[in-house]
Nucleic acid binder design. Structure first.
Lengths: 192, 192, 192, 192
DNA sequence: AATGAATGAGGTTTCATTCAT
DNA sequence: GATGAATGAAACCTCATTCAT
């Protein structure tokens, strides 16, 4: 059961995500977010306490969304196909929520950084999903000797984010399939 | 010969770099930068005209350093060895100038982004260096069919940055050689 | 018989008193009061109509208590002894309800002041009690020539409040009897 | 030598004092203060950091003014006349800076209270002046046996403030000399 | 070449009040 | 009789920029 407040929060998340895609998350004003969500400015403060509170909650929400979408692709019988599917979904997510992805990249490696503490466990959640899928690939004997799965998973996540953003920002004319194949080409270093 | 003004600019660069790694470029105030550099606020405006002017000069300065160091590794007879050497140097640069690297990943894909226009040609400079080296690899017949060099170059640059930062922030115990080997493993997807 | 509403009102009074002693009446928020009382914010409005309504009711309630206690000491045969007894009771009241007394000194002379209009007649009620007692002293021929009873009554009330609070806050180690004797020493200026 | 900043602070003090007299110190807006002082709003923050910072500095400034004015009356040959003169000056100060005096009374006995820590040593300064003067009266053999000078000084200060405010707020038609005589009548309990 | 006090547009935050439940 | 999510006017505060020194 979703309460009224939950629905309001949901609407504020969506509004922020939408605005962040075109204007970035920093430089976004509470006025704009509230207007986009169709609520009063005070409602943001009632629900999240502060602008930072909203952003922190949004980070959790957004990473949750991403995790959910990635997990949906981990059940395939062929683990390599699953990995490819996971990459494809990651690209789709970044394309859809570019502003959010951009802040992930901005804040993930900022230390000490305002949201570093929030992001560290969230990053771990995503990396875990990738790690598990890589383990399945390994269990199927399709990973070369010497690949350290935890390291490879972390690298893959960062690479995926960054390549997807680079595609959106600097090479928007390319098709997603094309970019996906580029990333998969990189993956060939890991899989066979 | 370094003039008094040059020394002041250098100090402002260093102060900005130090602060930007934890607070970001947007969150940084001219007051803080001036205080950290030990000069008055007006001095920033005297030397750079505006906050943007300072940031832009810093970005140009930093990217110039990076470009110079990468170029030093592009002359090797064996193009694949050159590529590997270039990766190694990239990792070393990030380790040495982590603050600047964090700025790069934070701002590179931020759109509209205050410094996006400045960074776009600077990114092009770095990507070009990688592109040229990949071309040499291709000319030597060591690149698989179907690899699009411009795309691969852009992807490699982003990946390098992100993997290096991830190493510094989340896996500082790993040796640089180890990380380099991990990236080179990735590179095998491109080269043969 | 106390109804549910009466109990709620009482709890709101107590919560307000507790918070107001350190934060003042103006700095107090309805949210805080409701939280301290363990009721929802809307309940304050249901019972008192507004924040002002709550404060006014509290002021009337508190002054009513004080007036009742002071009046209990005005019937003595010896008017000077009665005056001394009244002073003693005033000190006891401040010691017991320090939070309320702090509110009184904070708001009594605040002009324009949100609650000034409410306090003015309430102050008059207390001053009247003192005035009547002074009149009895005067009727007994124990007041020096030239003492203006209304003026003296107002002065005594203020002095009593302030000396009592000063005792509680800055000299808590003193015994009440000691403080009372100090005030009575002052009173000798008035009586003989 | 007074710097430009010192002059600005001075003007902000005077403006705040002026406005506080008619509108109270709480409820005063930074906009109003800045406008009254003829400076921009930002100037308040440049000089004092926050509205609270301004108020805290004002408390020190105002009490300093009061102390200076009281001290000017402590040199008289006749200590009792000096005490009377001191009382007279105190009344004049309250009449002139009613808003400031009102906040003194509001905050002096508020515990813990936002400005209690600031006010405690300031109160001590004023009480000391009164104490010294009472000591001179005592040295001249004009204080009755049994009067505790520290206690009497504290009581006198509070009484003075409160009687003066009561005069200004509830009995503005009375002449200052009349009120002074009323306080001196109270003092007769102490002096002879 | 450098300073730092002053500015004000534009943001964030507070909080008494309303109202559907 | 009580609730608590929502409101928006009105406050506070930030900070890039200017300019007289």
């Amino acid at each position: 059961m979703t309460s009224r407040a939950d629905r309001t929060k949901q609407r504020l998340f969506e509004a922020t995500l939408k605005l962040a895609s075109s204007r970035g998350l920093v430089g976004l004003t509470v006025d704009e977010i509230a207007a986009e969500a169709g609520v009063a400015k005070g409602t943001v403060y009632y629900n999240f306490g502060s602008k930072d509170g909203l952003i922190e909650a949004l980070l959790r929400y957004g990473v949750g969304q991403l995790a959910g979408r990635l997990r949906a692709h981990t059940g395939k019988p062929d683990p390599v196909a699953g990995l490819e599917s996971l990459v494809d979904e990651g690209l789709a997510f970044v394309a859809e929520y570019r502003g959010f992805s951009q802040i992930l990249v901005s804040e993930m490696w900022r230390t000490p950084g305002q949201w570093h503490e929030t992001l560290t466990p969230l990053r771990e959640e995503i990396v875990s999903i990738v790690k598990d899928q890589l383990q399945r690939v390994s269990d199927a004997g399709r990973l070369p000797e010497g690949v350290l799965i935890p390291t490879a998973a972390a690298g893959l996540f960062g690479t995926l984010l960054v390549v997807a953003l680079d595609w959106q920002v600097f090479q928007p004319q390319r098709a997603r399939a094309e970019v996906r194949d580029g990333v998969l080409l990189l993956l060939r270093g890991f899989t066979r």
